[in-house]
Deep mutational scan, measured.
Amino acid sequence: MLDDRARMEAAKKEKVEQILAEFQLQEEDLKKVMRRMQKEMDRGLRLETHEEASVKMLPTYVRSTPEGSEVGDFLSLDLGGTNFRVMLVKVGEGEEGQWSVKTKHQMYSIPEDAMTGTAEMLFDYISECISDFLDKHQMKHKKLPLGFTFSFPVRHEDIDKGILLNWTKGFKASGAEGNNVVGLLRDAIKRRGDFEMDVVAMVNDTVATMISCYYEDHQCEVGMIVGTGCNACYMEEMQNVELVEGDEGRMCVNTEWGAFGDSGELDEFLLEYDRLVDESSANPGQQLYEKLIGGKYMGELVRLVLLRLVDENLLFHGEASEQLRTRGAFETRFVSQVESDTGDRKQIYNILSTLGLRPSTTDCDIVRRACESVSTRAAHMCSAGLAGVINRMRESRSEDVMRITVGVDGSVYKLHPSFKERFHASVRRLTPSCEITFIESEEGSGRGAALVSAVACKKACMLGQ
C-alpha cells in the first residue's frame, strides 16, 4: 500500500517536472537572447534605426563620474514606483581627507489618484512632500541643488532636461508624456511658492545606482535594477552614441532593455503563462523582457503555473481556492519566502493557508518547484541581457580580458534567497573573457542622484555659470 502511494507521488512529481521543464533555458538559448539583445542595442544607438529599435539606448548626458572633490548639501528625489523618497545628502571631506556622503531620508507613498490623475496632481503632491521634508529638517530658507531620480523612459536633451516617452509600472498621470519632466517639477514648486529649489540633474535609477557604486569602486561602469521592473545602464564610447554629437570619451546610456521583445525577438521563448500575464497587464505587448524578470510579474506567473497544475490534477487534489483564482493573489514576496523555507515546509504551508488552501507535504514541495522554475528562468533571462552589455563593452574597448564592476539594486536581487547566485553564475558562463565584480548599492537611487548633481554643480562652477 505504502509502495503504491510512494509510486503515485513519484509519478505525480515526474509529471510536474515535465510541465515545469518549459521554463528551462539551455545555454544556447541564452546565447541567442544575448546576441539578439546586442543587435537591438546597436539599432538603438544608431541614428537611422533608433526610432524602430525596441531597446532605445537613451543617452543620459552623464559623462563624468564623481571624483571626490564636490562638497555641499544636496536634496535628492526618487520616483520610480508607488513609494517616493526625499533625501538630504551631505557631501563633504571625511576623516583623513576621505570623501564622505551622509544621508537623511523619508519615504512617502503615492496615492492612487496622483498616479493615475493628471501630471499637475502628481507633481503638486511631490512638491508637497518636499515642503514637508524641508519643514522637518528646518531647511526651507536654503535654496538647495536638487537631483531627481526618475525611473521611467526619458529622452534627455541635457542633464536637466528630459522628455517622458511613456509611463510604465502602473503610472498613468495624463499630460506628462511628451513633456519635460524637470519643467513639470519646477512648475509645481513655483505653484507652491513656499520654498526654492535648483533642479540641476535628472537621472534614471540605473544611472543613480551606477554612480553610487562608483563611489565604492571606481571600476563600476554598469548599473542595473532588478526590482519591480528590470533595466540597466553602462558607459558607452561616445563615438557609438549617434544621437549625441561628439566622439570623445564616454557617456552613460540608459538601455531601457525592459522593452526588448516588443518587436518579436522573444516570441519563441514566451510561454502561455507569459501571454496571460501580458494580456492582463496595463501595457499589453510592451516591456516583454521586463515581464519575464521583474517583481511586478513574478508572483503572478507562479500563480498561473499553480492553476495549470491544479487543472492537471497534480496539486491540491485538483481544487483551487477562490483566493488562488484571484489575479495578483500570489505576491512576489511569497516566491522569495517559499524558496527561503528551511525544509520543514512550515513557511510554505503558512503562505498557502493564507490563500485558503490546506496543502499536503507533496503540495508544498511542488509549489516550491514552481517558484524555483519561474525565478530561475528570470535570473537566466536577466543574465543574457547583462552578458550582452558586458561583452559589447569588452569588444568596443578591444580588451582581451576586461575587469568590470556592476552596481545592482532592486528588491528581487536583494531579497530573493537564490536569485543573485543563479544570476551571477549564468552571467559568468556567458562572459568567459571578463572578470566581473557585483556590488549592491546602498540607498543607491538617492545618493547617486545627489552625486550626479554634485558633478553638475562642479561643472557649472568651472564653466562660470
Rank of each mutant, 00 (worst) to 15 (best):
L30K: 03
L292S: 10
E290L: 08
H105I: 14
S54F: 02
W99E: 05
V203Q: 13
V406A: 05
M251Y: 03
F269M: 14
E300T: 00
T168H: 11
G227V: 02
S109T: 06
A21Q: 01
N254D: 08
A201G: 12
G448M: 12
D135M: 08
E268H: 09
M37S: 00
C213I: 14
E14V: 12
L47A: 03
C457H: 06
E440A: 09
V455G: 11
Y215K: 02
E440S: 11
L352K: 00
D247H: 04
K346N: 08
G92Y: 05
L314W: 03
V253W: 02
L185H: 11
T405P: 03
E440T: 07
K15C: 05
K56M: 06
L75M: 09
P66Y: 11
E339N: 02
K161P: 04
V374M: 04
D42K: 07
L88W: 12
V427E: 00
T103C: 13
D113G: 14
E112C: 08
T149N: 15
G147V: 08
G147R: 05
S127P: 00
V200M: 09
G385V: 13
S375E: 13
D194S: 08
N254H: 10
D124K: 01
T362Y: 04
V310S: 07
L314N: 02
E443I: 00
A232T: 12
E40D: 14
S281R: 00
L288C: 15
Q38D: 04
G246M: 06
I19W: 15
V16W: 15
N231E: 09
A114K: 13
E96T: 13
L304F: 13
Q26T: 14
A11E: 10
N83R: 07
R155N: 07
R303K: 02
K143C: 13
H218T: 07
L146M: 06
M251F: 00
D363T: 00
V33L: 07
D29I: 00
P111E: 14
L357Q: 06
N166Q: 09
S336M: 12
D344F: 06
K172T: 11
F133E: 02
M197W: 09
K346T: 07
D262P: 02
L324R: 01
E93Q: 07
V182F: 13
I110A: 01
R397G: 04
T60M: 07
S174V: 11
T65M: 11
D400E: 14
Q26P: 06
L2E: 13
C230E: 01
V367W: 01
D262T: 14
E265R: 07
C434H: 01
R7L: 08
A387E: 00
G407H: 08
G299D: 05
S445T: 15
H416C: 10
A320M: 06
K172P: 09
S336N: 14
K104P: 12
G258V: 01
D113T: 13
F84S: 05
A320N: 15
V222S: 01
G183I: 06
D73G: 03
T354Q: 14
A173F: 12
L243E: 14
C382A: 10
E93F: 14
C230P: 01
S426L: 11
R358M: 08
M37L: 09
G68R: 08
L288Y: 15
T405W: 08
G183M: 11
T65H: 06
M87I: 05
L266H: 05
I225G: 02
S109M: 13
F316N: 03
E290V: 04
V374I: 13
N240R: 07
G356V: 02
K136Y: 06
L271C: 06
H317R: 08
T209G: 01
W99M: 09
N240W: 02
K32L: 10
L451Q: 11
T342H: 09
C364F: 04
F23C: 02
D274S: 00
R308D: 05
A460F: 14
L324T: 03
L144A: 02
A456N: 07
A21C: 14
G97E: 05
G264R: 06
E236A: 01
L146R: 05
V374P: 00
V16H: 09
D344I: 02
L292C: 10
P145M: 06
E443D: 05
D198H: 10
R429Y: 10
E70Y: 13
C457L: 14
R397K: 11
R377H: 00
F150V: 14
G258L: 01
G261Q: 01
G44A: 00
S100Y: 02
S360F: 07
E435C: 06
K414V: 03
K346P: 04
Q239H: 13
G97F: 15
S445I: 15
A232R: 01
C213N: 15
L266Y: 00
K346F: 08
C252W: 06
A259S: 06
M298D: 11
P284W: 04
Q337L: 12
G261I: 01
D274F: 00
V222C: 05
G448Y: 07
D113K: 10
D124A: 05
D217S: 04
G162N: 09
A53Y: 01
S445G: 13
C213M: 11
R275Y: 12
P359F: 02
P59R: 02
S212P: 02
V241P: 00
M197K: 08
E372A: 08
S64Q: 13
Q286N: 14
E443G: 09
F269V: 11
E22W: 10
M8C: 09
C233P: 02
G448Q: 14
K12R: 12
L266V: 14
Q347C: 15
P432A: 12
W99K: 12
R327G: 12
C461A: 15
S263E: 13
R186M: 14
S353D: 08
T116G: 13
S336C: 15
G356S: 07
D409S: 14
A176T: 11
D262S: 14
D42E: 09
V62F: 08
S174E: 10
S336Q: 10
A173P: 07
H105N: 00
G410M: 11
D267F: 05
T168N: 12
S373P: 04
L463K: 14
R155A: 07
N313E: 14
C230W: 06
K13Y: 14
I126D: 00
Q287A: 12
Y125M: 04
K143T: 14
E27Q: 05
E265Y: 05
A10M: 12
G246A: 03
R394W: 02
I159A: 09
S398D: 07
A201R: 08
A11T: 15
V101A: 04
K31S: 08
R303P: 03
I439L: 08
K142I: 11
V408T: 10
P432R: 11
V452L: 12
Q98N: 13
S281M: 06
